[in-house]
């Protein structure tokens, strides 16, 4: 059967894109036009640390931990967003690269609580020799709302004897989300997921600037007064535990959160007819978290409020036993 299609065909399959040859740490590698240096590095098995990068989001190249050295380039370049070009010679382990990665990790570790940022981050900190303590003892946490009121272009210049941090009390203004911005590395993922890359609700944005930059609703209003629709897609992409479902935060607070005892089962959402895949995280026959696989084409990891939180009716049946 032949199909006569009056307009262009499907988006260009990978196999039809032009091939590009370059080298990574001296190894030749072939990628396709449009692929990034990170793609090239991964293809030859060179690990590049990333924090703000996620496959389902447009790269924002802000964390700079993925920088690599490209011959002929004045500065290092972010591998997550830099497109591969023919003949590029890429170094991923030069002194310059290692120094910058170490410093990025050190700057973050000295200003943000990375304790829930995952094993990889802890390993990179060790591998690169990042030493948060070089910058002095952490300053006292800010009062609630203090960082949200910081005015651009103005700040209190301290004596430098303690290292400024983003530490502050966690925000909890609704029953579903906890926002603990002491853990926020400002990777923009939540903003992208809430915004144009997925949800297009734009309940949050980056506000303020410099070290006072933060994720904020308009005028720092609580989520119930904001445009938030509780899809949880921001939480799903947060790499550091700054954004967390209250169900998880509460279990963690009780010391009862135990991922080793959790089973993850993939099923389909019980609500509308779109067919979103759910991953039910079950601990002790109780659903403790719902996610969606990033690599499934229906959701790309995203859900709506019903899919994300609407499982409670099943638990309620158990409670009624």
């Amino acid at each position: 059967m032949t199909i006569t299609s009056p307009t262009a065909a499907d988006p260009t399959p990978v196999s039809l894109r032009r091939r590009i040859e370059l080298s990574v740490d001296g190894q030749p590698v072939t990628v396709h036009e449009g692929d990034t240096l990170l793609d090239a590095c991964r293809q030859v098995g060179v690990e590049v640390p990333t924090l703000c990068f996620l496959e389902t989001l447009a790269p924002v190249n802000v964390c700079r931990v993925c920088v690599v050295e490209v011959e002929g380039s004045r500065t290092l370049v972010p591998s997550c967003s830099r497109k591969a070009e023919p003949g590029m010679s890429v170094q991923t382990a030069s002194d310059r690269v290692r120094t910058s990665r170490r410093m990025v990790l050190e700057l973050l570790a000295s200003s943000v609580d990375l304790s829930l940022a995952g094993d990889d981050v802890q390993r990179w900190i060790a591998e690169y020799g990042a030493r948060a303590d070089r910058h002095g003892p952490a300053a006292a946490p800010a009062a609630a709302g203090e960082r949200d009121r910081a005015r651009p272009g103005h700040h209190h210049v301290g004596d430098g004897l303690s290292a400024a941090t983003v530490h502050q009390p966690a925000k909890r203004d609704n029953e579903l989300y906890q926002r603990d911005y002491s853990r926020c590395i400002l990777c923009y993922k939540c903003v992208e997921a809430c915004g144009e890359d997925a949800q297009n609700t734009f309940a949050i944005a980056v506000a303020g600037r410099g070290f006072d930059a933060r994720i904020s609703t308009e005028f720092d209003v609580g989520l119930p007064d904001s445009a938030c629709v509780y899809c949880g897609n921001c939480i799903a992409v947060c790499p550091t535990g700054a954004l967390m479902f209250t169900s998880e935060a509460d279990l963690r607070a009780e010391g009862a959160w135990d991922e080793d005892r959790q089973q993850v089962t993939r099923t389909v959402c019980p609500y509308c007819g779109v067919g979103c895949n759910l991953e039910l995280h079950v601990q002790d026959n109780t659903i403790v978290k719902v996610t969606s696989p990033l690599d499934h084409e229906v959701t790309s990891g995203n859900l709506c409020v019903k899919g994300r939180f609407g499982f409670q009716f099943a638990q309620a049946r158990r409670a009624a036993d």
Binding site: R64, L108, G136, D159, A163, L186, G208, R209, F211, A213
Partner: peptide, 24 residues
């Protein structure tokens, strides 16, 4: 430190740390 847009880690935190060194 005041004029950094805050987008990238080196500048956002680095300018703060630089000011702290000068203050010290």
């Amino acid at each position: 430190r005041d004029e950094s847009c805050g987008q990238c880690v080196p500048c956002r935190v680095g300018t703060q740390r630089q000011e702290e060194v000068l203050a010290r």
